[in-house]
């Protein structure tokens, strides 16, 4: 399956990926309105940074996803066809079991009206995820694993 890969050497730590991710998953979908009014937004991609090294990390959509096994309410599921792991907001009860088992630490708590787990859904209704589309340095790429270095 196509996943998002990061080219660390070109990640400039601007965090625009985080910003566009939040807007995409906001209610209004409008950047200024979302940031001024929806204060519970959580980015599903996170830029980790130390010194001049930085990289954006988001759900790896593991083939054998531990979060799916750990989910107590059946909210977390892996689509067999696309391989995408998603969390059903309606079913999620906010027990954070997924957060504890995630080996990459990429599942976030969304503390709004209802506590739910929040994770990358690969922006399935877009041609490419918004973080990839808006990365100003093409450090994020959407690719099959074997093609990730070619693009």
């Amino acid at each position: 399956m196509k996943k998002i890969y990061i080219k660390e050497e070109y990640c400039i730590g601007c965090r625009l990926c985080e910003i566009y991710c939040q807007v995409k998953h906001s209610k209004s979908k409008k950047i200024i309105k979302a940031f001024k009014t929806e204060l519970d937004m959580v980015p599903m991609v996170t830029v980790e940074e130390i010194g001049h090294h930085s990289f954006a990390v988001q759900c790896r959509h593991c083939p054998d996803a531990p979060c799916v096994d750990a989910c107590i309410s059946g909210a977390m599921s892996k689509n067999e066809k696309s391989g995408v792991v998603t969390c059903d907001d309606q079913k999620c009860v906010g027990c954070w079991s997924c957060i504890m088992v995630c080996p990459y630490g990429v599942i976030k708590r969304k503390l709004g009206e209802k506590k739910i787990a929040s994770k990358c859904d690969l922006c399935q209704d877009e041609l490419e995820p918004v973080c990839v589309k808006n990365c100003p340095n093409e450090a994020l790429v959407l690719a099959e694993e074997e093609e990730k270095d070619e693009s």
Binding site: G13, C14, R15, I19, I31, F35, K36
Partner: peptide, 8 residues
């Protein structure tokens, strides 16, 4: 929106 991209 105080995203601090400018700052970084």
């Amino acid at each position: 929106i105080s995203c601090q991209v400018c700052l970084r």
